[in-house]
Computed example of a mutant assay.
Amino acid sequence: MANVRPVVFPSGGNPINGPQQRRGPTVPFQTPRPANPNIPFMSFDVGRGGSPPPPESTPFYPPPSYGGNGMGIGSGFEDELPLLEELGINTRQIWRKTISIFNPLRVNANLHEDGDLSGPFLFLMAFGLFQLLSGKIHFGIILGWVTVAALFLYVVFNMLAGRNGNLDLYRCLSLLGYCMLPLVIFSAFSLFLPEGGVFIFALGAFFVLWSTRVCTQLLVELASCGDEHRGLIFYACCLIYMLFSLLVIF
Rank of each mutant, 00 (worst) to 15 (best):
I240C: 05
P10C: 04
Q93M: 11
D79H: 03
V198Q: 11
G88N: 11
H112M: 09
F130Y: 10
P120G: 13
E221K: 14
L193R: 00
S43I: 01
P59C: 06
F121D: 14
T212A: 15
P120I: 06
P25F: 12
C237L: 10
L105K: 12
Q217S: 12
R5A: 08
A188S: 05
R213E: 12
L132K: 10
G88A: 10
G18Y: 01
P25E: 14
N90M: 03
L117A: 06
S65K: 11
F41G: 06
A126Q: 13
L143P: 04
P37E: 01
R230C: 05
F192P: 01
A205F: 10
F102Y: 13
N69R: 08
L176D: 07
I233P: 01
T212I: 11
D114F: 06
P64V: 05
L219N: 03
F157E: 09
P40W: 02
P34I: 00
P19W: 13
L246K: 09
M242Q: 07
G162I: 01
F139K: 09
G18N: 02
V208Y: 06
P82Y: 04
V46L: 15
F152N: 09
G135S: 02
Q30F: 12
L203K: 00
F201C: 09
P82T: 06
N38W: 11
L183T: 00
S174T: 15
L246M: 14
Q93R: 08
L191Q: 04
M180A: 08
L169I: 08
S51A: 12
F189R: 01
W145K: 15
F186S: 00
A205Y: 05
I141G: 08
T216W: 02
V208P: 05
G231N: 11
G165M: 01
A205W: 03
N110S: 15
A2M: 10
V214Y: 02
L153A: 06
E85W: 08
T26P: 11
L167A: 10
T91L: 15
F123E: 07
L151S: 13
P59H: 05
L132W: 12
N90T: 07
V8F: 14
T58H: 13
Y66S: 12
I200Q: 10
N3S: 09
N164Q: 05
F41V: 02
V146P: 06
C172P: 01
L203H: 00
N14R: 07
N103Q: 08
P54Y: 04
E86D: 15
R213Q: 14
P104V: 01
I16K: 07
T31Q: 15
L143E: 09
